[in-house]
Amino acid sequence: MDWQQELGLTWRIAKLRIAAQMQFQGSFLMQLFGNSIMTIMEIVTVVIFFQQFPALGGWTLDEVLLLYAMCAIAFEIADTMQNGLDLVPEQVRTGDFDRLLTRPISVYLQAITLDISVRHIGKTILAFGLFCWAWLRLDLALTSETLLLLTSAWICGIALFIAIFTLGAIVSFWTVGSIEVVNAISYGGSDLAQYPIHIYRRWFRTIFIWLIPIGFVIYYPTLIILDKPDPLGFAPIAPAIGPLLTIAFVALVSLLWRQGVNHYHSTGS
């Protein structure tokens, strides 16, 4: 079976599971509502924070909101798509992971559809709303250049976030019980990227950009779209570096995933 068919099948699984959730979980709308409320609270926090310091690092409130929304869109979409990976550590611990290895399709695609969660859809829509609002208030033009920057930022951002989540699942092939560590990495990373980078200490900033290259992928495109001064001087090469780093990181993670599955094959737990 080639990868197109496998992707089609994965999408079919996801669709059926979403339908089943809407049908059998009466609490679906409640979940969606609860999650949206949480996101609104988060945004209000950012707004209040920036009213105290109106020009943090030279950024206005609307600019920060745009950056926040850029990041949130990628993160929420990734989080929706990767939900099943959260279950991998538990499945590895109990041996339920075995069953993914008895089927004729990609283990990874099966793993990300172990659980499909629609509760993030509300947050994704909110993030889009916020993005449009900030975009209009900043009176930015939608040129072919900005469009390219936006799509590449989102595609790379989603891929990166999913890769980071995957990294967390991979760890569990060796050390089961890693959920806390993963959350510290990925959720922590998301929070950091939602504020202007250059207010962080230099070493941290450097590690952050290179290790988890979300800075290049989200921060720099936003910076260029907003036409802000670049504190680090990477702006001219950032649009090329972001996708390259993403590809490298995704390749590394997929290699590690394969290693992890092989390790499972050889230890059985």
């Binding site: 699984i13 059926l16 599971r17 959730q21 059998f24 069953r99």
Partner: peptide, 15 residues
Amino acid sequence: FGQRTQLWWDLPLRD
């Protein structure tokens, strides 16, 4: 595997 199901836990058997 008698001990664990091969099916999708949230889907109707038919699906």
